[in-house]
C-alpha cells in the first residue's frame, strides 16, 4: 500500500510536469489536454488534504466544464492561426527573469515565515456537511451573489455571442 508521502510526490511532480508541458507545448490542443491531466493530479492533492468535495468539484468543473469549453473554442477557431509556435521575442528574457524574481522572494518568505499553525489542530474530517454548513449560514449572502454573477455571466455570453454583437 502506498503511503501518503509517495502519493504526494507522485501528484505534485506530475502536476508540475503537466504545467511545464502546457507552457512549452507547440499546439494549443495538446496544451489544453495537459492542463486537464494536471487538474486531475491537483484534485489528487486536494484529496490528500482531506478536501474530498473540492477534489470532486475540481474534476467536475475544471476538467469537465471549463476545459471542454476551451477545447470547444479551439475547435471553433482556425487551427492554422492558433497552432503557430508563438513566443514573444521581447518576453523570452523578461518573462523568466520576472518569474525568477518572484520565486526568489517567495522562497525567502517560505523559509523564514513562522506560520502560526499548530500541527495538532482539530483536524478536518472532510465530510460534505463540514463545508456546506458555513456556505449556507455564515456565507449565505456571498453564495447568493455568486449565483447572481453566474447568471449575469451567462446573459453576457449570450449577448456577446450574437451575430450583430456590439
Amino acid at each position: 500500500m502506498w503511503g501518503q508521502e509517495t502519493l504526494f510526490w507522485i501528484c505534485s511532480i506530475a502536476l508540475i510536469a503537466c504545467a511545464l508541458l502546457v507552457v512549452f507545448s507547440p499546439s494549443t490542443v495538446s496544451s489544453a489536454m495537459f492542463l486537464i491531466l494536471g487538474f486531475f493530479f491537483l484534485a489528487g492533492l486536494y484529496m490528500l488534504l482531506h478536501a474530498f468535495f473540492l477534489g470532486v468539484v475540481q474534476i467536475l468543473v475544471y476538467a469537465g466544464a471549463v476545459m471542454v469549453l476551451f477545447l470547444f473554442v479551439i475547435m471553433l477557431l482556425d487551427p492554422k492561426i492558433i497552432r503557430r509556435w508563438w513566443f514573444k521575442n521581447a518576453a523570452i528574457i523578461g518573462g523568466p527573469l520576472l518569474v525568477a524574481a518572484l520565486l526568489v522572494q517567495v522562497a525567502h518568505i517560505l523559509r523564514t515565515a513562522p506560520w502560526h499553525i499548530t500541527v495538532d489542530a482539530q483536524p478536518l474530517t472532510g465530510t460534505l456537511i463540514e463545508i456546506v454548513r458555513p456556505l449556507f449560514t455564515t456565507y449565505l449572502l456571498p453564495l447568493e451573489v455568486t449565483g447572481l454573477i453566474l447568471m449575469v455571466a451567462a446573459i453576457g455570453v449570450v449577448v456577446l455571442g450574437r451575430r450583430d454583437a456590439p
Binding site: I16, V22, T28, L45, V73, G95, L98, L102, L103, A107
Partner: peptide, 21 residues
C-alpha cells in the same frame, strides 16, 4: 507546489502570444 504552479502560469501568460494560452 503552489508557487511553482503559479510561476508557470505567469510564464505562460508572459511568454505565449496566443490569447487562449
Amino acid at each position: 507546489v503552489s508557487i511553482i504552479l503559479f510561476s508557470l502560469g505567469i510564464l505562460c501568460i508572459v511568454l505565449r502570444r496566443n490569447t487562449l494560452m
